[in-house]
Amino acid sequence: MTDLRKTLDFLYMAAGVLAALCLVAILALIVAQMVARWTGEIFPGAPDYAGYAMAAASFLAFANALNHGAHIRVSILLNAVPAGTRRLLEIWCFGLAAAVAWYFTYYAYWFVYWSWKFNEVSQGQDATALWIPQSVMVIGGGLLAIALTDNLLHVIFKGEHRIVRDTVDETFEV
């Protein structure tokens, strides 16, 4: 059980780090494109690669952001109800969100499968086989679905979810 716990936590963290590296990649790609232009060179496909990095930065970060409480929701009702009702409400929230995330992941998988099957290539100058960048939707969506299910099980069996607000945000409370 602790092994599974450690593996999951490692996955959320690793995906977050990868997402952060994708932000660096966006920066590098855009700078490279500008420098290329200033020096009369071309960097074909740079905007497309930056777009893929953008998608990867978003999807890979979803689960990590969830566990750090970065995704927002309206919590008026959650804060107003007594503990027992709150737990039921949390089960509804995590259950529904997990359902949406699994639904997303399922269709993302088939979307990527058909991209691969049809040999779909990018229409830009990069001519990338699209299933490669599109896979981040399946991986990131799947991780978000796992993270939501993970939290759902915690609410059901332990009474509390595992979302911890980020320390960075607490600096606002000075």
Partner: peptide, 26 residues
Amino acid sequence: AGDTMITTIWASSSSWTLTALPLFIW
């Protein structure tokens, strides 16, 4: 619903013009 959802979400989240947003946030 599922297919249209993924098509439109992929298009909107892999857009080049969107890259300005995380960079300004960074």
